[in-house]
Amino acid sequence: MKVMIRKTATGHSAYVAKKDLEELIVEMENPALWGGKVTLANGWQLELPAMAADTPLPITVEARKL
């Protein structure tokens, strides 16, 4: 699914347009965010693609819901 990742004042957030859902990312498998699992505030887990740590945000990526 397409997910937009952006930086907020409190960390990172994910927006899933198909579900009209925006949630804070509360847990990251990798400190650089990319190439691992993230957990959203509502409990969803997404697998993000591997990208460079300095990838500019906001960005829309293809993520997989676990």
Rank of each mutant, 00 (worst) to 15 (best):
E22D: 11
E27Y: 14
G11F: 04
K7N: 06
T55P: 06
N42Y: 03
T8R: 07
W34N: 04
K37I: 14
I25T: 04
G36D: 00
G35A: 05
M1F: 14
G11C: 05
P58N: 04
L24V: 13
L66H: 07
E22K: 06
E22R: 07
K19T: 14
G35F: 03
Y15N: 05
V3D: 00
A14C: 11
G43P: 00
R6K: 14
P49T: 04
V16E: 04
E29K: 04
A52Q: 09
S13R: 08
E22W: 14
I5Y: 01
N30C: 10
R6A: 10
L66K: 05
E27Q: 12
N30K: 11
T55D: 01
L33Q: 03
A14E: 01
E23Q: 12
I59C: 09
K7I: 09
L33G: 04
E27T: 10
D20S: 09
M28A: 12
A50S: 11
N30I: 06
S13T: 13
A53W: 13
R6V: 10
M1I: 15
M4T: 15
A9K: 12
E47W: 14
I25H: 01
H12Q: 04
K37E: 03
T10N: 14
A41S: 11
L46I: 12
A50W: 15
K19D: 15
G43M: 03
K19Q: 15
A53Y: 10
S13M: 13
G43Y: 04
V26D: 03
V3I: 11
G43E: 01
L33K: 01
M4F: 07
V26R: 05
E29M: 06
A32R: 13
D20N: 11
T8C: 08
A53K: 10
P58A: 02
S13W: 14
W44M: 08
H12N: 04
K19L: 15
P49L: 05
A9C: 08
T39K: 11
W34G: 02
I5L: 05
G35P: 04
A17H: 14
W34Y: 01
H12P: 06
A9R: 10
D54G: 10
A17M: 14
A50D: 12
P56V: 12
Y15S: 09
M51T: 01
A63I: 09
K65D: 12
A52C: 08
G36C: 05
D20R: 11
I25W: 00
N42P: 01
E47G: 06
E27V: 08
M51Y: 06
A41E: 08
A53G: 09
L46P: 00
A41G: 10
K65W: 15
E27W: 15
T60K: 04
K37W: 15
I59V: 13
T8Q: 07
T8H: 09
E62S: 12
R64N: 10
T60F: 10
D20L: 08
K18H: 15
E27F: 13
A50C: 10
K65G: 09
H12D: 01
G11W: 04
G35W: 01
E47M: 14
L48C: 01
Q45R: 12
Y15K: 09
E62T: 14
P31E: 13
K65H: 12
V61C: 04
R6M: 11
E27K: 11
W44I: 07
W34P: 01
L48W: 03
P31C: 08
D20T: 07
A50R: 11
P31L: 09
L57D: 04
S13D: 04
T39P: 02
M1G: 03
N30M: 09
N42R: 00
K37D: 04
D54N: 11
P31A: 11
A53L: 10
L48M: 08
K37S: 09
A41L: 06
L40H: 00
V38L: 05
A41V: 04
E22S: 09
A14G: 07
L66C: 11
P58H: 03
D54C: 06
Q45P: 02
L66Q: 05
A52T: 08
L66M: 12
T8F: 06
G36P: 01
E47P: 00
T60I: 13
L24W: 08
K65M: 15
T60C: 11
Y15R: 09
E62R: 11
V38R: 00
M4C: 11
G35H: 01
K18R: 13
I5S: 00
V3E: 03
V3M: 01
M1T: 09
A32C: 09
I5F: 04
K18S: 15
R6S: 14
V16Q: 03
A63W: 04
L24E: 15
A63Q: 02
W34C: 03
E62I: 15
E47V: 14
M1H: 05
R64K: 14
L21F: 14
V3C: 06
A32I: 11
A52K: 09
L21A: 08
N30A: 08
T55N: 03
L66N: 06
G43C: 04
M28L: 07
L57Q: 04
A50V: 12
L40K: 00
G11M: 03
I25L: 06
A9I: 10
E47Y: 13
L33C: 07
A14L: 14
H12S: 03
I59M: 10
G36F: 03
T8G: 08
M1Y: 13
P58K: 05
G35E: 03
M28H: 11
V16A: 05
E47A: 10
T10L: 14
N30G: 05
H12F: 15
A32W: 15
V26G: 01
K18Q: 15
L33R: 03
E22N: 09
E27C: 12
G43F: 04
T8D: 08
V61I: 09
V16R: 00
T10P: 03
D54K: 07
K2Q: 14
K7A: 10
G11V: 03
K65L: 15
P49W: 05
P49N: 00
M28Y: 12
Y15A: 07
V3T: 02
I59L: 10
L21Y: 08
G36H: 02
I25C: 04
R64D: 05
M28P: 00
A9E: 13
L33H: 03
W34F: 09
A52N: 10
K18E: 15
K7V: 08
G11A: 05
N30W: 08
T39S: 06
E27G: 10
L40F: 03
V26F: 05
A53C: 08
E27N: 09
V26E: 07
A17V: 14
T55V: 07
A17S: 09
W44A: 01
K18G: 15
A32M: 13
T10V: 12
A17Q: 12
L40D: 03
M28C: 11
E29P: 00
D54M: 06
M1C: 14
P31M: 09
Y15E: 06
E22H: 12
M51W: 05
R6D: 07
T8L: 08
V61G: 02
E23H: 13
K19G: 14
V16G: 00
M51V: 06
D20F: 11
K7L: 10
K18I: 15
L24A: 14
P49K: 02
E29A: 08
M4H: 08
P58R: 04
